[in-house]
Amino acid sequence: MTSVETKRTGGKPRTEVRAGPGLLRRNATRVILAVLILAVIACVVVTPAFLTPANIRAVVQNAALMGIVAVTMTPMAMSGNFISLGTQQSMVLASMSFLALLSQGVPAFVAVVVILAGLTLLGVLQGVIVALGLNSVITTLAFGVIVVGVIQKVNSGGADVTAGDHPVGWGAATVLGIPLQVVVLIVVTVLVTGGMTGTTMGRRAMLTGANAAAAKVSGIPTNRVTVGVFALASAGMGLAGILGAAQFGISGPGDFSEITFGAASAILIGGTSIAGGMGSALRSAIGAVVIGGISRLMTLNSFTPGTRGVIEGALVIGVVVAVETARLRRTRG
């Protein structure tokens, strides 16, 4: 298994193609695992109740939505398209319209299909615009602003939406004792990880991020790659929005306010380069769980929102610096 990496350190650009047989041979993975293990040890020492099955379930369940968004957005970041600045808006669109459809008596299955299709189309539209030459930051930003405007226009007054007489029965469902959201996260992670490493399209996305010019010259349909990664990310937001709506049964324009930078943090903690060219969907999922775990731990120990923010932000910076330092040492040594 090879991975192509481009990075800029101290201004010296270097490109490296390296081979490593397994997941554990990669430094980034090792650093993330070390952080994860340290975090778990710290949790258990500080709060013995942390390792109970009920608590672990709560952590993973809370992290699942952010994880789904982070995992499906990882190919976008890896292909050099940054992160979507319209994440929250797309998720709110999905969750509010899901509940609105249900309250009109539309069967849940139909509503899920309609919304996933609609969100995918929204992603395709953004991907096409980016492929035409517009910057992805501008495009996702503009779509976010437009989407939130449309939501508020349709739902005048900014009131919360519920499913009315047709409440969702499966929002808190479990499969073999595992919450539905977590099952979806696992399935999505397996699919995206497999797709990125095991399919032509996935390898092409990674190569496009490593060096877009080289990818284009070597005949990779970079435009199709762009449209594909945007569609996937947008569908992921739709899925997370639907699951959120099903879980809470109520949705408003202010929901998921921390998801945009939360998902970005998860991707970063997972060691994916936001500039493109390298990354792993599995590690993004782990990143989301780490954030969820630490956040839960701080809640259990009644930290104030301020202290929690300082620790979470410092964790993002610390882990990214640690991952990059480890990578540098490996390339230099």
Binding site: F261, A264, S265, L268, T304, P305, G306, T307, R308, G309, V310, I311, E312, G313, A314, L315, V316, I317, V320
Partner: peptide
């Protein structure tokens, strides 16, 4: 992205 979370935290503190 990290410091926007940290600074928000400092503001709350």
């Amino acid at each position: 992205i990290g410091s926007l979370i940290v600074l928000r935290g400092v503001t709350y503190v």
